[in-house]
Design a binder for these strands. Structure first.
Lengths: 211, 211
DNA sequence: ACAATTAATGACCGAAAGGTCACTAATTGA
DNA sequence: TCAATTAGTGACCTTTCGGTCATTAATTGT
């Protein structure tokens, strides 16, 4: 179907250092699109500009590549948060606004959406992956939320209540927005900015004491 | 490993009417556990007490079985809601409480959790399935929410705001709870009742005008 | 410059699984 | 009761794909 039109000058370069990362990037794209089971290593290789066999020089199996790919993507996006919370001077509401704003900024970005798609669709089937993300991201976010609420209680800005005991509910809307876009994005995408506005409005109504 | 201990009296019954449903139930369990691609039709058959070939008497392909299974599970759980909203006498807050309470009751049930797991993990890859659920469930829920907000605005109970324009944010916590349990349920399950309390608390704080 | 090393290749293997079909036997109905 | 019908079976076909390995050629070190 393609005679010798383009001789495909394939000089066969050796690039020991660059390869693993390229394979991982290609893998993430394929895994996000097709899911783990339906992803073909040959397609990953093609996307990375190499051949299937080469993958095995860097990764022992499809599953190892999968886990390596998901591990590689864990940014330290929330690394700075505990410090920010500790040093913060303003109101609890403003602190929550800051946190939620960061969440939208961080999560609605092409690379993170890619990762989110994979975790949402495969997380339950790969305990190691779920645990990794729980420990390094979700659990940390939870701790930060808890600390914010404790701080609010200590400063007398809020009273003990079901909500202060389960502050995770406060970030429900962001999670919903991501999942929604993952599943129904083609039919009826959520505009992050619009959702953020509604979310901030909800926080303010629920926790602001003005009037 | 099992000589002739139990001769397995397999009388080979013919049950034209019961079979399709049994296959669908077996399929749902397998699809939820392993995902579409990794599910083996032989396992589905075994679970249904038949043999792989028999599946093909009722379904043309694995994909057809998948779609049939997901279609079959669509309960009319929200069917009654529009009427309830139309006839409701109480406050907007109470109406929302009612709605949210129903959501928790409906969604945190073994069968629905099974379906949720499948939709969350495979929805993006099966546009037909996503569309079906969007039209029959999600879209309807959205309409109900919108009508509740319109009603609240008309009755002067709430003012136009980012939140009233994007009321989906109000049910974020339920969605989060389901997705959380799907992905991190083994590590740190969310107790629906506790989350419901926090959610109701959030609604009340955000929309109640007392004090 | 050239030998040793090793990244990269692509042909190949074997198992797994979707799907088919000729056959078996339970059901139906005349 | 017995022939016609058809649900159910299981052996089989075919393709796909994860994984292997002998071979090739780019790189490295001396």
């Amino acid at each position: 179907m393609e005679p010798a039109s383009e001789p495909t000058g394939k000089p066969r370069r050796r690039r020991k250092e660059a390869r693993p990362h390229e394979i991982i990037v290609a893998g993430l794209a394929e895994f996000a699109e097709r899911g783990f089971a339906a992803t073909r290593l040959e397609d990953v290789a093609a996307r990375a500009g190499i051949v299937k066999g080469t993958i095995y020089r860097y990764f022992d199996s499809k599953e190892m590549l999968f886990e390596a790919a998901l591990s590689s993507g864990i940014g330290s996006a929330f690394e700075a948060l505990p410090e920010i919370v500790a040093d913060y001077e303003g109101s609890t509401l403003d602190l929550l606004r800051l946190l939620v704003g960061r969440l939208y900024e961080t999560l609605f970005t092409p690379e993170v959406e890619l990762l989110a798609r994979i975790i949402i669709s495969e997380g339950q089937r790969f305990p190691a992956v779920a645990e990794l993300y729980y420990r390094l991201l979700v659990g940390k976010g939870r701790d930060v939320l808890r600390r914010i609420m404790e701080r609010g209680l200590a400063r007398g800005e809020l009273l003990p209540s079901p909500l202060s005991a389960t502050p995770e509910a406060l970030i429900g809307p962001v999670v919903m927005a991501i999942v929604w876009n993952t599943i129904f994005g083609r039919l009826d995408p959520i505009e992050p900015k619009r959702f953020l506005d509604a979310h901030l409005d909800l926080l303010e109504k629920a926790l602001g004491h003005n009037g």
